[in-house]
Simulated assay, not measured.
Amino acid sequence: MNKDHESPEERRERLRQEELKNPSSSVHGSNLADLVGGLNWKVTGSIIIVGLLIYFIYGIFFR
């Protein structure tokens, strides 16, 4: 595909793949953006909500 006509998601993925080929150019390494980069906002929000619920339940019962 022509680099001029690619979507932002395709460009982001292409740059990420190039960075994985040459990891010494990466300053940050693996991070949260890599984790949620392939997920949509609903899945990401669901993960955050479930994590907060677990945190609060743990705080209530194990205090």
Rank of each mutant, 00 (worst) to 15 (best):
M1Q: 14
L35H: 05
F61Q: 04
L20K: 15
S30W: 11
S25P: 00
E13K: 08
I54C: 01
S30P: 01
W41S: 14
Y55L: 10
T44M: 05
K42T: 10
I49V: 11
G38K: 10
Y55P: 00
D4G: 02
P23C: 04
E19P: 00
L52G: 12
K21G: 04
E18D: 08
L52Y: 09
G51N: 05
L15V: 03
S7C: 12
P23S: 13
L32K: 09
N40W: 13
S7E: 15
I57G: 01
A33Q: 03
I54D: 00
G45S: 11
P8F: 12
L52F: 08
I48D: 01
Q17R: 08
F62Q: 03
E19D: 08
V50R: 01
V36Y: 01
N40Q: 12
N40L: 06
E19Q: 11
A33Y: 02
K42W: 13
G38N: 15
K21V: 05
K3G: 07
D34A: 01
E10F: 11
M1C: 06
G51W: 02
H28Y: 06
S25G: 12
E19W: 07
A33M: 03
N40T: 06
G29Y: 06
G51E: 02
I54Y: 00
E9K: 11
E19S: 02
G37R: 02
I48Q: 01
L35Q: 06
I48F: 12
I57K: 05
S46Y: 09
N40R: 12
M1D: 07
G37L: 09
S25Y: 08
K42E: 06
K3W: 10
G45C: 09
D34Q: 05
N40F: 10
T44K: 03
S46F: 13
S46P: 00
N31L: 07
D4C: 06
I57E: 04
N31S: 13
V50F: 06
I57R: 03
W41P: 00
Y58P: 00
D4Y: 04
Y55W: 14
L52H: 05
S30I: 10
